[in-house]
Amino acid sequence: MERARQYALSGYLIALADDELILGHRDSEWTGHAPILEEDIAFANLALDEIGHAKLWYELGADLLGQDKTTYPDRLVYFREPAQFRNMQLVELPKGDWAFSTLRQYLFDAFEALRLEALSQSSYTPLAEIAARIRTEELYHLRHSQAWVPRLGLGTEESHARMQAALDALWPYAQGLAAPLPGEQDLHAAGIVPSSAALFERWSGEVSQFLVEAGLQVELRSPLADMHRSSHSEHLPALIHDLQSVARLDPEAIW
């Protein structure tokens, strides 16, 4: 692969990794505070998986940049400024109630399943291999959230109301899934990555139907004005500050 394309692909992967890292961060906040002991374990699992996925993508990104796989991911996570993160806003929103977290997980995982299916066919083999491995874990995530969404959507009046409120809040942000990742156009043309917009079409159809079956009303609303991955809510700086607080006490230390 030529240098320029390697560079572009690493940017793409770091953005993917940022999504996983930030979502995993939010999931991990449930550890010790979940509604059922078994869900403490389940959400910790989601978090472990997502952060594990982030690590894999950062490592491949580091490789493409000619950087050290063992140290560069931590430099990216702990020593970038919030404005340098390329995650979508959907994942940085605070964890909210359990309806919000569970539904966000579903919306994101349903899209990720499609993206990973496509990435596992990538013409760039190292990428395809990692995507295939991550995909097996994601199938389980989807099973977990597909179990809970209808239970909460149809369970009681209160759970239904909470889910509908969560959906109304999340839906505009979920439209951001359609926005291209950094470098996507060129990489897509080269057969390395899929088109987010095309995946989004499939995702909308599948997800809307599933949500309706779970008793929820999906309203078509205009997306947020700015879906670009370089724009963030005020929640991201706070999250990054927390995330980096120990590592930055001593930047030279090996933690």
């Binding site: 961060h25 550890t31 374990i41 472990l48 702990y78």
Partner: peptide, 25 residues
Amino acid sequence: GAWITKAPSLRRKLILLAKVQDEAG
């Protein structure tokens, strides 16, 4: 659990999360 979000490396973060998860188990 209060330190999971603050763990200073990805490795330490995964370790701590897995450990606290074990406690729930």
